[in-house]
Amino acid sequence: MSVLEVEALVAGWRQPAIRPISFCLEPGEILALTGPNGAGKSTLLMALAGIGQIFSGRCVKNPKARLGFLTQARPPIAGLPLSGKELLALTQASPAGLPPWLSNCLDQRLDRLSGGQRQYLALWSVLQTPAELLFLDEPANHLDQAGIAHLRPALRQRAKAGAGILLVSHAPDFLRDCCDRAIAVEPCPCSNPRP
């Protein structure tokens, strides 16, 4: 059974933002949503998560599938006394599989880590949260080379473990390396995808 089935779906905020779109996401599959800036990719993810609005069409999630969602806005951790371990515990994400340059500093406050370490840990806290369906909006944003290099096999491994992953990214190399297939999101004429 598909983990997510979308049929002729039109989503947006106050008004439709995208043209009707249809696809299925199977367990273990990584599907990329592509399109230019403002096409409505993030809006579509929000609507599929039940936060944005669905105007028409059908969206069926496997009722047993738990959802993990990484948005482009990363956790606001500046000045917050929160350790890496605590961030992972909050989303019930396992630290197993973290790269050594992160697993060694999980006891430190997040705001004492480097920007790259912080970004990767925030991503990891969602990537490894117990979920069968993952929406990742620009997961490679703000990651350094080491982070991107570790993310590719980590995504594969997560999919191999049975999760269906819907991914938005503007990095063509990253999409080509990580995704099984891609589907284009087209904006609705005269639409504004912002909430």
Binding site: G50, I51, F69, L70, T71, P75, L82, L87, L90, T91
Partner: peptide, 18 residues
């Protein structure tokens, strides 16, 4: 307390989980 933390750090993840 944990919900207050999660809602502040990962609000969309919190809401998406219903």
């Amino acid at each position: 307390g944990w919900a207050l933390l999660l809602l502040s750090l990962h609000p969309v993840l919190f809401l998406a989980r219903g």
